[in-house]
Each structure stands twice: as C-alpha cells, then as structure tokens.
C-alpha cells in the first residue's frame, strides 16, 4: 500500500477534486439550511450528513489516512481504527450528553429555575427552552 512518488509527479487531481467537492458541499448545506422549506429535522439530517461526508473527504483526499509506511500494514489499520474509535467516542459524548441532560426530569430543570433562583430570564425560556 506504499504511496509511490510517481503518483505525485503529475497534476494534483485528487486535491483539486477534493477542494471543489468541499466547496460544493458547503454551499449546498448553506442553501438547504437557509433557503429551503424543509422541516428542521430534515435540514439537520441533511447538513450533518454533508458535514460527515466532507470530513471523510478531507481525511481521504488531503490527509491520506489510509497511507502508511513501507514496513507493515499495521500502521494504516491503527490509523483508521484510531479515527473510527475517536468517531465512536465523539458520538457518545455529543449525543449521550444531549440525551442525558435533556431527557426526563433534567428537561424541566430549566423551567423550574426561575422559581428557585432570582434571575430575569424566565420569559426567554418559554421561547427557546424546548426544541
């Protein structure tokens, strides 16, 4: 799997395609988010899908995550496994935290606040509190 320098003598097509695709994905995500009438759920699914796609693009096209040294293919397996496990941990942290802290009683925590503490944010919580 060693990359040969021969691949690197010509025009950097791989980089250019990656760049163009990332621009397209960025603009498309922006369009979906701000200029379509899709429901919020669908917008979120689409734009996060694009984000993951674009991250994969960077990893493969620019960062050469599958590349390794000449000696063994353990290195590339470690590199890919490392990124996949990081993705697993990241998903657990983000989705887990949001779920745990907005489900059940925790959800009402914010609405209870004005009663137990004196701060003036109560009118805002009705507007922005639940989603």
């Amino acid at each position: 799997m060693a990359k040969t320098t021969a691949e690197h003598h010509g025009f950097p097509w791989k980089h250019l395609i990656g760049f163009v695709l990332s621009i397209v994905l960025t603009l498309f995500a922006l369009w979906v988010a701000l200029y379509t009438d899709l429901s919020v759920t669908w917008i979120l699914i689409i734009i996060f899908g694009f984000a993951i796609l674009q991250a994969a693009l960077q990893l493969l096209m620019f960062m050469h995550v599958t590349e390794n040294s000449t000696s063994s293919n353990l290195t590339s397996r470690v590199q890919i496994g490392n990124i996949l496990f990081a993705a697993f941990v990241a998903i657990v942290i983000v989705i887990g935290s949001v779920w745990v802290l907005t489900a059940g009683h925790a959800k009402h925590d914010k609405h209870d606040e004005p009663k137990t503490e004196n701060h003036g944010g109560s009118h805002d919580s009705e507007e922005h509190g639940s989603h």
């Binding site: 995550v65 470690v78 590199q79 490392n82 990124i83 496990f85 990081a86 993705a87 941990v89 990241a90 998903i91 942290i93 983000v94 887990g96 935290s97 949001v98």
Partner: peptide, 16 residues
C-alpha cells in the same frame, strides 16, 4: 495521528 484522535475527543466535548 493518535494525538488527533485525542483532539477529536477534546472537540467533541466542547461540541457537546
């Protein structure tokens, strides 16, 4: 590369 894995966990915590 492995350090970047740690960075992913770091930013994930900030995103969460």
């Amino acid at each position: 590369w492995i350090f970047l894995g740690a960075e992913i966990a770091l930013f994930a915590t900030l995103f969460a």
